[in-house]
């Protein structure tokens, strides 16, 4: 994602003037955008080019 969170919210409001976000909604949206950044960082950590199939099994001993 590019730009800071405030710019993004301003961008949303300018595209959809009817939106009239309240302070509470802006706070919530800012939090959601922070979560979105976390989500994309998590995706960045996945190496989709170099991965080895590595499923493992551990047999459970019957009680």
């Amino acid at each position: 994602m590019k730009g800071n969170l405030e710019d993004k919210i301003k961008g949303i409001q300018s595209h959809i003037p009817e939106l009239n976000l309240t302070d509470k909604e802006i706070k919530s949206l800012t939090h959601q955008l922070e979560l979105l950044e976390t989500m994309l960082k998590e995706l960045d950590e996945i190496d989709v080019e170099n991965w080895e199939p590595a499923v493992t099994f551990t047999r459970r001993e019957k009680a």
């Binding site: 994309l40 991965w51 551990t58």
Partner: peptide
């Protein structure tokens, strides 16, 4: 335990990318 009584065998299985699933899904 119910499945074992019904005759099945049980393994714990580890899938290396399972913890990333929510991030894939949400994107």
């Amino acid at each position: 335990r119910v499945f074992e009584k019904l005759g099945a065998s049980v393994d714990e299985v580890k899938l290396p990318h399972i913890r990333k699933a929510p991030f894939m899904w949400a994107t």
